[in-house]
């Protein structure tokens, strides 16, 4: 059996999750397993004692080479609800500025008997490097790498879609905005295709579309009227302000006029279409307040589901890692 490199790294020999690095090339059953497991955790947040003992005695290290408050907090909360010990390291630039290489930093942490690394890094592929070549026996969860992947964000979006739409069969989903720089969009496209969505559309001006964007497994549109026509789900992406400085866009105003989601443009979508956004939102840049706060917006619920999805992924990866033979099945 030949597996794509990404699945070889992520799965144990008997197909269990041991690292969660990308949604690409994972089997549909496994993605559904993540969603089902997350469903069982959604209730935990509503209890008076919000903890389950699945990760008791385990040490989770949040390794954030790129700063992020929101994503890190949800991972921290998820780990705590699983009863893990959590260590937060905002490495941002401190360790590397002291001359320590990523490799050295990781070897040190491994020596502290960490069981899981939650990694965010500015370079695409960093979690692969860690899982493959540095610490194969520590479960690695990708919390966002460069432009490559943000699989837990994508899975919480999948959870949200399944929650509101009941499933994925035949769904038309549009992802709008800065596709070029978006790790979220890439992970969403792979997850949606694997879960059986009918059509995934990417909508952006050509400066914000990667070349061969179709190769991701999507249909590409450059205008909202055609792209949003009859879609069931609209996912808006955050537009970073610095895009205006690098000749990718003339202004926020023109972007909003052409691609910003307001009630008028939302008319193109199906009547019961839901609107999503991975946050934090830029009101008046990619989305109008009337939509963000409107009846079709499910943006706040996404945050709630995020903790449950991260609990699911963390518990599954720890259990897969525990069942894998020591030394790693995929050393180079």
């Amino acid at each position: 059996m030949t597996l794509a490199p990404s699945s070889r790294v992520q799965l144990t020999d008997d197909g269990k999750l041991r690292h969660f690095l990308t949604t690409e090339h994972l089997p549909r059953s496994l993605l559904e397993d993540i969603l089902d497991t997350a469903a069982s955790f959604v209730d935990v947040g509503g209890r008076s004692i919000k903890k389950v003992p699945l990760l008791r005695g385990k040490t989770v290290v949040n390794l954030f080479f790129e700063s992020s408050t929101r994503t890190r907090s949800t991972f921290e909360l998820a780990a705590q609800r699983l009863s893990a010990d959590v260590l937060n390291l905002d490495i941002a630039k401190s360790a590397t500025s002291k001359g320590e290489t990523l490799l050295d930093t990781l070897r040190n942490l491994e020596a502290m008997a960490a069981d899981m690394f939650v990694v965010r890094h500015q370079d695409s592929g960093a979690p692969f490097f860690i899982a493959n070549e540095v610490t194969p026996n520590v479960a690695v969860i990708n919390a966002g790498d460069g432009r490559h992947a943000h699989p837990t964000q994508a899975m919480l979006d999948m959870y949200t879609i399944r929650h509101y739409k009941g499933g994925f069969e035949g769904l038309k989903v549009a992802i709008v905005g800065d596709i070029l720089h978006s790790r979220v969009a890439r992970s969403q496209v792979h997850a949606l295709n694997t879960l059986g969505a009918g059509e995934v559309r990417l909508i952006a001006p050509k400066t914000l579309l990667p070349v061969d964007a179709e190769a991701l497994g999507a249909t590409v549109f450059t205008d909202m009227a055609h792209g949003l026509k009859d879609v069931d789900v609209v996912i808006m992406l955050r537009l970073q302000k610095e895009r205006m400085d690098s000749a990718l866009l003339p202004s926020e105003g023109e972007f909003f006029r052409l691609y910003g989601l307001n009630n008028e443009k939302l008319q193109y979508a199906k009547e019961d279409a839901i609107v999503m956004h991975p946050g934090p939102i830029n009101r008046g840049v990619e989305i109008a307040s009337e939509v963000a706060d409107g009846p079709r917006s499910v943006i706040l619920n996404q945050v709630t589901f995020g903790i449950a999805v991260r609990m699911a992924v963390m518990s599954m990866a720890i259990s897969g890692q525990d069942s894998a033979p020591a030394g790693g099945a995929h050393g180079s």
Partner: peptide
């Protein structure tokens, strides 16, 4: 190389 592989892997491209 700016092409389908770099697009999927999220690697900045050289066209």
């Amino acid at each position: 190389h700016e092409g389908p592989v770099a697009t999927r892997l999220g690697l900045p491209g050289i066209p």
